[in-house]
Design a protein around this nucleic acid. Structure first.
Lengths: 264, 264
DNA sequence: GGGCCTCGTATTACAATGCGATACGCTTGA
DNA sequence: TCAAGCGTATCGCATTGTAATACGAGGCCC
């Protein structure tokens, strides 16, 4: 959950100092708002001197903030700027944005756009008018690709060999008692998504929640993103939810597919 | 607009390599989605070799993505993760989140939460149910503190000396023909905000838009954030908009103030 | 209330590491 | 066909980051 990428080997072009500095920012993936030097050093697996130099540098640059009283560090506002730059330049997200807003208005439910990123999906747009669990409103959140509705919709658009590879490298730990987490069961759900054009999960991410999702395919035929609609089992049966939103979602995703947004 | 922080002097604790690496990410504040090596080198003021090493490292870590065909770089999805970690841990933003959602539902207008950051405000929550200009939906966007409604509401809570210092260091370039950008005019608007408990701007950020905003004060008595309500002059007169939402907003901001969220 | 532990900060000698000039091969367009 | 510009790879040098150490301040427990 901390570092989804592998730290590479000795390589003459690799700048280890940069990695260490970014690891300091990564230390805050624990969810703690404030950390002192020792905690940061521990989380990064370095000594205190190293943590001192990197926190000092990051603070000057605005990527870390230091409380004058407690001398503890937190992430700086400048990290939000990087997100802004990512999203403003992303043509796929920009094109999807008005579509998602419209979808939210039309359905009244929470709608999301998530991006494909190897073993994870990563939320990029979240539209809701209801009061939600805080994390469900935040972009940048990562979820396992194999258990999420959008993830399975995207896996359904990948060649079988790639799906196998992804499942093999994934940690299939269930998120709720109802998470389908055996490879055969997951593959069956992926096959269903392939056939229907959308995926359905019932209480697999959060209890009480039903989600349908459909994949957006890029110009190269690969899944780039997914749109999700999430509802509450207090208001819907899974069947009604699927019937009402599944086909609509598949059609919407289709409309956003096969454009030159994503790559190039 | 590119680098709000000053690059510091020679200092034994300062890790220049880290700064250079982060400058590569900062190069994308131009708004371009894709950049080649030379463009990145130019934007960072370095040579091609340096750009080569840093892009290579950042790509391995997921903070940059490289198109296999064109060999050009774009920001990586991992920068969104940093935002997530910032927001999930920020108690002020978390506390404000349901309040903003409620405010959006109650008013039907676009509501924002912005954070105080020296010469800028920086959006952290944006709630809207309408179709908006894309940038108006993105968090992490920076705006000048002196021209924005939320910024002036926050300046109204600062000592006069600090306001003078901020105005002195700011670039008072108007954003629209109606932006009040002379120091005396700005100070007058700040004084009005002080008196009313909220600030009002009419077409100062975008033509056709009216905004009211009120500051959230932290436990130390300093402005930490502001909540905004933005409307269209096509639907409202400035006077009606102010009368309808100003007092509501001031009261809402008051309710979120003086807690132990922001610092510590 | 005194002593001890842990924190953040500052310094320094050392060599590993990042540096940047250079060269190569490829694609593109004139 | 050639030249310009690109991404990539190599390498000797010294700059820059390293990590051990020491200091002083603050907080906690006995």
């Amino acid at each position: 959950m901390t570092a989804p990428r592998k730290p590479p080997k000795a390589d003459p072009l690799y700048v280890a100092s940069l990695e260490k500095g970014l690891n300091v920012l990564g230390a805050f993936s624990s969810g703690q708002q404030f950390m002192n030097l020792r905690e940061i050093a521990e989380a990064c697996g370095t000594d205190k001197s190293t943590a001192q130099r990197f926190t000092h540098t990051l603070s000057q640059l605005g990527y870390l903030e230091k409380c004058a009283k407690t001398k503890r560090f937190s992430l700086g506002k400048r990290v939000l700027e990087l997100s802004f730059n990512y999203l403003r330049a992303n043509a796929l997200v920009e094109a999807a944005s008005p579509v998602l807003i419209e979808l939210q208005r039309a359905t009244g439910e929470r709608v999301n756009l998530s991006l494909f990123d190897d073993l994870s999906i990563l939320y990029a747009i979240r539209q809701s008018s209801k009061r939600e669990y805080y994390f469900s409103t935040l972009i940048g959140r990562r979820m396992p690709i194999w258990s999420s509705s959008g993830g399975r919709a995207m896996l359904a658009a990948l060649p079988r060999a790639e799906v196998n590879d992804i499942l093999k490298r994934s940690d299939l730990k269930p998120l709720t008692p109802r998470t389908i987490h055996d490879p055969a069961g997951i593959r069956k759900k992926i096959a269903q998504a392939q056939q229907k054009g959308y995926a359905l999960t019932v209480e697999e991410g959060v209890m009480g929640e039903v989600v349908v999702a459909a994949a957006i395919i890029d110009a190269d035929g690969r899944p780039a993103a997914a749109i999700h609609i999430a509802g509450s089992l207090g208001e819907w049966t899974a069947e009604r939810f699927e019937r009402k939103f599944g086909p609509l979602l598949a059609e919407t995703a289709q409309r956003l597919s096969h454009h030159r947004f994503a790559n190039r």
